[in-house]
Amino acid sequence: MIDDIDRRIIIETQGGLPLVPRPYAAVADAVGTTAEDVTARMTRMLDAGIIRRIGAVPNHYALGYRGNGMSVWDVPDERVSELGRRIGALDFVSHCYHRPRHLPDWPYNLFAMVHGKDRDAVRDEVAAIAALLGEANRGHRVLFSTRILKKTGLRLAG
């Protein structure tokens, strides 16, 4: 799906584009190709969904979104895709993923990261998800983060 030059472009830009007038030319120099090739490859990776977006990546916590609740849900496996898509479409949900259960310790199979200004805002948002799920919600929790111990962008060994 991606070749070595694509991979090098991703590795070169994973910490961010250089904030210079011609950032793609700077990336091109670093990976040994032309700026035109870099933008053509990034366009192709965007169209293929490998790159989801290119732009300013906000740091929610620094912007005052201190709630940062990871909500986890136990829903019937046969409905997880349908329900996941509906929750993922909510504007306060930044990520929504199906993950495996680990019974008996961990019965939850659907994760939705919920952002709000504070915990009360997050709790209201979680209540909205619970209402949307109705009887499909067989149990849920919100795991608030108490500390960010490490946070960096995607890192791949070069």
């Binding site: 991606i2 910490g15 961010g16 584009l17 790159i51």
Partner: peptide, 25 residues
């Protein structure tokens, strides 16, 4: 450029760049 640099330096943004789909690379 200057405003983006300030946003990055103050931590309001982590970077200006690509968000990669998990598990694609």
């Amino acid at each position: 450029l200057s405003a983006l640099g300030d946003l990055r330096d103050t931590g309001a943004i982590s970077r200006v760049g690509a968000v990669i789909r998990p598990n694609s690379v």
